[in-house]
Design a protein around this nucleic acid. Sequence first.
DNA 1: CATCAGCTTTGACCCGCGTCGAACCGGTGC
DNA 2: GCACCGGTTCGACGCGGGTCAAAGCTGATG
Lengths: 235, 235
Amino acid sequence: MSAVCADCAVRDASLCSSLGDDALRQLHRIGRRQRVARGETMLWAGSDSLVCATLLSGVLKLSAATSDGREQIVGLHFPSDFIGRLYADTIPFTVSALTDAELCVVPRDRFEAMLTTNGEMERLLLKRTFATLDATRARLLILSRNTAAEKVAGFVLSMAERARGISDFQALPGGPVTFELPLTRGQIADVLGLTIETVSRQLTKLRHAGVLALPGVRSVTIRDAAALRHCAGLD
Amino acid sequence: MSAVCADCAVRDASLCSSLGDDALRQLHRIGRRQRVARGETMLWAGSDSLVCATLLSGVLKLSAATSDGREQIVGLHFPSDFIGRLYADTIPFTVSALTDAELCVVPRDRFEAMLTTNGEMERLLLKRTFATLDATRARLLILSRNTAAEKVAGFVLSMAERARGISDFQALPGGPVTFELPLTRGQIADVLGLTIETVSRQLTKLRHAGVLALPGVRSVTIRDAAALRHCAGLD
DNA sequence: CATCAGCTTTGACCCGCGTCGAACCGGTGC
DNA sequence: GCACCGGTTCGACGCGGGTCAAAGCTGATG
């Protein structure tokens, strides 16, 4: 239980950033670091909601499935994101690791107790939850009204933005940008509500159009950001 | 400015239920009742976030649109629901009335100030926001993975449950249940990510199958709830 | 009553994307 | 080297649901 908080990579970006020294020490005492391997599931939908966590590194997916097995990724979690379901006795969605990941895990009841005595942290969590809700609602529009081409183009843009820490599409510079996708084609398909084949076809279409280059199977180069934005149905 | 709080229909169901007498009086002083006519838009996406509100009666929609005009309803609001976007300077989605509606409107800054001094209310809002987020994520799965038939059947079921809470109808599992849809076919289509024609066709298919009866254009009778659940892809 | 506008229903057509099948590619272990 | 295996790409085909067009229904208004 050493090496918590002091060397935390997301200390200033996570909910903990709202805590004073005393509260941080208190949280330090009940937090535990945990590693999750790529592909491993850490919380199962329907199971008891016993813990919550802050994601320190890696990418997690939040997914649901229909009774006949069709899956949909309903959210992605990146470092400094809050994980888990407070104020409920069961977990609503399955949480799994898309890459190797590291978390700071806290018992749910302890964390809820801390929230009631730390108004700052509660307010920050509320703000983040509003933002997540807005993003999820925006994805509703994308999933139900966009074509496959628009979905894939928009996804590449959003991952580029995420990879570079840029906060909006228009800030993407004109020159070529290369980055790694933390998701396989199948996982991209599950995010976008498509099939593997359609994702693959749309990506090669963008490559043939000169908009993208695909130097490796997981890496993407944006060669024409304006065209990509246009394909995504923006502006 | 008379007739606020004392005769409020949702006093015990809204966020106000978490307030003590003093705080309620304070909120009473800054709250204003407002009527919105069916079809009217009360908040435009992109406009300044100046007010929030509690819905007293009627049904509101939360909608977004692509740049080329395709619309998607990303949420529905029923009486006692909280309306508006706190902690942001612009409204992310358009809020319009599906039926005549009545609200209790409060300036956003005043409401945020009240939240910080009323931990109970803040916690209740946080809980509700989590629940809304879960419901929105569940709709992601439905919108992207369900067929048109499953969407329409599921929608009728959810509206039946909602109607049961509003007006006192018989329990769902038993015999036939009749209720009014507060949405036109076009609005249902916008909720489900379909077209008017497809919604209409699916409803008549359910009618021909003996699962539903459609006595009026806005009213629905569930004749075989088990079959309807099956069509929705549940159990 | 007649008119009219908005909503709904139904039919005919077609295209985007899912489905199925097969080949390809890169890493890992033998 | 070889086989293997998960992930990826590509082609052929079919269907669900979108698009277009037209007619029926209902309620408001004069």
